[in-house]
Amino acid sequence: YKIYPYDSLIVTNSISVKLPKDVDRTRLERHLSPEEFQEVFGMSIEEFDRLALWKRNDLKKKALLF
């Protein structure tokens, strides 16, 4: 996945969300650098992957990456 800054990946309720063209809309968190991922989620990507799907989705919603 290509890395993008968190600010360019957050999704708000506005209709005209302009995400970069090559971003996987269903896995926005994968486009964060490991350092920024840790900062946003408070855990590593590996720890995040071990969580239940509902928990990952809940965290993504709170981080505006859903």
Rank of each mutant, 00 (worst) to 15 (best):
1 Y>H: 14
1 Y>P: 14
1 Y>F: 12
2 K>A: 14
2 K>S: 11
3 I>A: 05
3 I>G: 03
3 I>T: 10
3 I>E: 07
3 I>R: 05
4 Y>N: 01
4 Y>C: 03
4 Y>H: 04
4 Y>M: 04
4 Y>W: 06
4 Y>K: 02
5 P>E: 05
5 P>Y: 03
5 P>D: 06
5 P>T: 07
5 P>V: 03
5 P>C: 04
5 P>S: 08
6 Y>M: 03
6 Y>K: 03
6 Y>L: 05
7 D>C: 15
8 S>I: 13
8 S>L: 15
8 S>D: 12
8 S>A: 14
8 S>F: 15
9 L>Q: 00
9 L>E: 01
9 L>K: 00
9 L>H: 01
9 L>P: 01
9 L>C: 02
10 I>E: 02
10 I>L: 08
10 I>P: 00
10 I>M: 09
10 I>S: 04
11 V>S: 09
11 V>R: 08
11 V>A: 08
11 V>T: 12
11 V>K: 06
11 V>W: 08
11 V>C: 10
12 T>D: 11
12 T>M: 15
12 T>K: 10
12 T>F: 15
12 T>V: 11
13 N>C: 14
13 N>H: 10
13 N>M: 08
14 S>I: 11
14 S>C: 15
14 S>Y: 04
14 S>K: 10
15 I>T: 15
15 I>H: 15
15 I>Y: 06
15 I>W: 06
16 S>R: 08
16 S>K: 10
16 S>G: 13
16 S>V: 10
17 V>S: 15
17 V>K: 13
17 V>I: 12
17 V>A: 15
17 V>N: 15
17 V>H: 14
17 V>L: 08
17 V>Q: 15
18 K>N: 15
18 K>H: 15
18 K>G: 15
18 K>L: 12
18 K>D: 15
18 K>A: 14
18 K>R: 12
18 K>M: 12
19 L>K: 04
19 L>A: 06
19 L>F: 11
19 L>N: 05
20 P>D: 06
20 P>V: 04
20 P>Y: 04
20 P>F: 04
20 P>N: 05
20 P>Q: 04
21 K>C: 14
21 K>Y: 12
21 K>R: 11
21 K>L: 14
22 D>M: 04
22 D>L: 04
22 D>C: 06
22 D>A: 05
22 D>S: 05
22 D>R: 04
23 V>E: 02
23 V>K: 01
23 V>D: 01
24 D>N: 07
24 D>K: 05
24 D>C: 12
24 D>G: 03
25 R>G: 07
25 R>A: 13
25 R>K: 11
25 R>I: 15
25 R>E: 11
26 T>S: 13
26 T>P: 03
26 T>I: 06
26 T>C: 15
26 T>E: 14
26 T>F: 14
26 T>M: 13
27 R>A: 11
27 R>W: 03
27 R>I: 05
27 R>K: 12
27 R>M: 09
27 R>Q: 11
28 L>R: 05
28 L>N: 01
28 L>H: 01
28 L>K: 03
28 L>A: 03
28 L>Y: 02
28 L>F: 02
28 L>E: 01
29 E>C: 02
29 E>Y: 02
29 E>K: 01
29 E>M: 01
29 E>R: 01
30 R>A: 06
30 R>F: 03
30 R>P: 01
30 R>K: 09
30 R>G: 03
30 R>S: 03
31 H>C: 02
31 H>T: 01
31 H>A: 02
31 H>I: 01
32 L>I: 07
32 L>E: 00
32 L>D: 00
32 L>M: 04
32 L>N: 00
32 L>S: 00
32 L>F: 01
32 L>Q: 00
33 S>R: 05
33 S>A: 11
33 S>I: 04
33 S>N: 07
33 S>K: 05
33 S>E: 04
34 P>A: 13
35 E>L: 11
35 E>D: 11
35 E>Y: 11
35 E>W: 10
36 E>Q: 11
36 E>I: 06
36 E>H: 05
36 E>C: 06
36 E>V: 08
36 E>P: 00
37 F>E: 00
37 F>D: 00
37 F>L: 02
38 Q>F: 14
38 Q>P: 03
38 Q>V: 11
38 Q>N: 13
38 Q>S: 12
39 E>A: 13
39 E>P: 03
39 E>F: 14
39 E>Y: 13
39 E>I: 15
39 E>W: 15
40 V>W: 04
40 V>R: 05
40 V>A: 05
41 F>R: 00
42 G>S: 12
42 G>C: 10
42 G>P: 00
42 G>Y: 08
43 M>E: 00
43 M>Y: 04
43 M>W: 02
43 M>S: 03
44 S>V: 13
44 S>N: 15
44 S>G: 12
44 S>L: 11
44 S>H: 11
44 S>F: 09
45 I>A: 08
45 I>M: 09
45 I>E: 05
45 I>K: 07
45 I>S: 07
45 I>R: 10
45 I>H: 08
46 E>W: 10
46 E>F: 11
46 E>Y: 11
47 E>P: 03
47 E>R: 08
47 E>M: 11
47 E>S: 10
48 F>H: 00
48 F>S: 00
48 F>L: 03
48 F>T: 00
48 F>G: 00
49 D>V: 05
49 D>M: 09
49 D>G: 08
49 D>T: 07
49 D>H: 07
49 D>W: 06
50 R>V: 12
50 R>S: 12
50 R>G: 12
50 R>D: 10
50 R>Q: 14
50 R>N: 11
51 L>E: 05
51 L>C: 06
51 L>D: 02
51 L>G: 02
52 A>R: 08
52 A>M: 08
52 A>N: 09
52 A>P: 15
53 L>Q: 11
53 L>R: 09
53 L>D: 09
53 L>I: 10
53 L>M: 12
54 W>Q: 10
54 W>N: 12
54 W>P: 10
54 W>L: 08
54 W>Y: 10
55 K>A: 10
55 K>N: 08
55 K>L: 12
55 K>V: 13
55 K>W: 08
56 R>Q: 13
56 R>W: 02
57 N>W: 07
57 N>F: 08
57 N>A: 08
57 N>P: 00
57 N>E: 09
57 N>T: 11
57 N>I: 15
57 N>G: 05
57 N>Y: 07
58 D>E: 14
58 D>H: 12
58 D>K: 12
58 D>W: 13
58 D>P: 02
58 D>A: 14
59 L>N: 02
59 L>T: 02
59 L>R: 03
59 L>Q: 03
60 K>Q: 02
60 K>N: 01
60 K>W: 02
60 K>F: 02
60 K>D: 00
60 K>I: 03
60 K>V: 03
61 K>S: 07
61 K>G: 05
61 K>R: 12
62 K>E: 09
62 K>T: 09
63 A>M: 07
63 A>S: 05
63 A>I: 03
63 A>L: 06
63 A>W: 04
64 L>D: 09
64 L>E: 06
64 L>M: 13
64 L>C: 13
64 L>H: 13
65 L>W: 02
65 L>C: 02
65 L>S: 00
66 F>E: 06
66 F>T: 07
